[in-house]
Structures are given as C-alpha cells and as structure tokens.
C-alpha cells in the first residue's frame, strides 16, 4: 500500500515525506523538486565503513544510521535522503525522531551547525535560548511567543554563516513541544496537536507567529538552572562562550566527527563566539518561574537596544 506524500518546509529545505511529521505541512505545494526526500523501506542494520559508532548510531562521511529500539531504523545520506524502516513505531513515533535527532544529522551533513536551543525573532535579529534537555528552552520560547515575538526554532536551532561570515539562524518549523506543567504555568490557550508520543505528558503546540526565513543571530542566552532563588543575567566571556557553544550546547555533537563535519562546526562556533554577545542566565531549579525569566530576558534585550517585539506580528501563538 503506497502512502500519501506530505510536503513540509523546515530549516530552509523542501521536505517530502510519506510519514507525517509533527508539524503543519507547507501551505503551498510548489512544483520544485524536494531538497530532502524521505522514503519508507528496508534500512541496513549497519554502515559498510563507519568512522564512528556509539550507542544507537553510526556515522561516516555522508552517511548516518540511527536505530531506535521498538520504533524505527533511519539511514540519512548526503544531506538529501532519509530511509526509514519501521520497527514497531507508529507514524507519530517515527515522526518525532525524524524531526529531532535524524534531522539534526541531516543538517550536519549539510554543514549546518545544530545548537541545542530555541530561537525567536526580535527587532534587531535572532535570539537563541541555549539549554540542555530540561533547562527550559521550550517554555521560555513559548513565553516569548506569548509576548509577541515570532518563533524561529524549538529544541534544535540550525545556524549557518552567510556570505559575509555572519552567523544566521535558520527557520526550523512552526511547532513548540511543551510539557503539561509548562502549558499550565503559561496559560497556553491555543489548541495542541496532541501528545508528542503516547504515554508522555508533552504536547505539540503549533505556533502561528512564526518567522519562515533566516535571520542574523544577535544574541544568545545560556539557560543554567542553579542553586538559589534569583534570576541573574550576566555576560559570558568569549573563551567561555566558545567552550560552551562548541560542547555543551551543540546538539548531537558526537555525530560530527564521523560525518567529517568538525571543521565546519569549528568555523561557525568561532564566528558565534566572536560576533554574538552571549549571556549566562542563572535560574532557580524549582519553581521555574517562566514569566519572571521572560521578564529578565526582555529587560536584557531592551538594555541592548533590541526592540522587544518583532515587526512581523501575526496571529497570537
């Protein structure tokens, strides 16, 4: 039985997929050939000549294999093709891993740097919220969207250098992923697309206020849960910013070596650390206080002369 094909726009790429991805399809369906073609079929259990092999993945220049037990096996080739072999997962399960780890490998194959970050549009450019799993990137993104900023990315922010060597954030896809407690705290009213996966209290939250084109990066904030009850924003030195951006906040950093993409990563992270002001944001571990955090970030953006609300105002997210 053949599956209907869906078309999406993500990270500036036209994507064609027989598996529904966890965000809204592209509004227009142009005749252009897709940049990325996802197919369903038998994937090899191993790469013929892996350069690196750990945990559940293997990588080699131009090739990446990920095995998610009970869900699917994914082969990513040349930044263009993704082969998915279902291994027990439904479309939603397969789509979640596709839109996350698998897409990150594909972006890396294309020389895009993947930061573990959400991103918004401000009057002066893109602002990244860097954080590890559980640090509060998505909640902060949602709070900023509620305050009128347009979303660029959630969880994985793709950054490239433009012709002038300036770090530029790609527009990912118009959906945030929020845990039930964050939805409650934010009073998020917009309908969700349901759970990210069965059994998880984490929801797909479509965001209408979305910027669909790339934008120069103007600032980055590193979210660090810390002991103590206060929220503090302090500038980070360039060496410290370089170190944090290149290790802690690079999404799936370990995929890079085998893919042969460390030089591109080094160039982009160096450009980020040199050109973009990076701040460390200490926030209490509990309670998270998303709105107080968003207040502090807006204050910091104001001090730096960035308008707080993006010009492209759309419907409320």
């Amino acid at each position: 039985m053949s599956r209907p094909l869906h078309r999406y726009a993500a990270y500036g790429l036209r994507v064609q997929s027989p598996i529904a991805l966890p965000f809204a399809p592209a509004s227009s369906t142009p005749d252009h050939e897709p940049d990325v073609t996802i197919r369903v079929g038998a994937a090899p259990p191993a790469l013929p000549a892996p350069m690196d092999k750990r945990g559940h993945w293997e990588s080699a220049p131009g090739a990446f294999l990920l095995n998610v037990d009970g869900v699917a096996r994914y082969l990513v080739t040349a930044g263009r093709d993704i082969l998915v072999e279902p291994r027990g997962g439904g479309d939603r399960d397969m789509g979640v891993f596709l839109a996350g780890s698998v897409f990150a490998a594909l972006l890396q194959q294309r020389g895009v740097v993947t930061f573990h970050a959400s991103a918004i549009e401000t009057g002066s450019g893109a602002v990244l919220f860097l954080g590890r799993s559980g640090d509060g990137k998505s909640s902060l993104l949602a709070a900023m969207v509620q305050r009128g900023h347009a979303m660029l990315a959630d969880d994985v922010a793709g950054v490239v250098l433009d012709r002038g060597g300036r770090p530029t954030a790609l527009s990912a896809f118009p959906c945030a992923r929020l845990w039930a407690d964050a939805l409650d705290e934010l009073g998020w009213q917009a309908p969700t697309r349901g759970r990210v996966r069965e059994g998880l209290e984490k929801y797909l939250a479509p965001v209408e206020r979305f910027r669909a084109t790339p934008l120069a990066v103007r600032a980055a904030y590193m979210l660090t849960p810390s002991p103590g009850s206060g929220i503090e924003v302090e500038p980070c030195t360039r060496p410290a910013a370089f170190e944090r951006l290149s290790s802690r906040y690079t999404y799936r950093k370990r995929y890079l070596s085998g893919l042969g993409q460390r030089p591109a990563h080094f160039r982009a992270v160096t450009a980020m650390a040199k050109q973009v002001p990076v701040f460390r944001v200490k926030r209490p571990v509990h309670p998270v206080q998303i709105n107080a955090l968003a207040d502090e970030i807006e204050r910091s953006l104001c001090e730096r002369g960035a308008e707080t609300v993006s010009p492209a105002a759309g419907a409320f997210g």
Binding site: R54, G55, H56, W57, L66, V68, V96, F97, G100, S101, R132, S133, G134, V196, R197, G199, L200, K202, R248, R252, K253, R254, Y255
Partner: peptide
C-alpha cells in the same frame, strides 16, 4: 543525567518513555 544519555546514545530522552 539526561544530557549525558542524549549525547552519548544520540537519542532524545525527553521524547522517550
């Protein structure tokens, strides 16, 4: 630690049961 799991195995623990 989630971050160690995620980076080491290349899998997103926050999307897993």
């Amino acid at each position: 630690r989630r971050s160690v799991f995620d980076e080491c195995l290349g899998l997103p623990s926050s999307d897993m049961t």
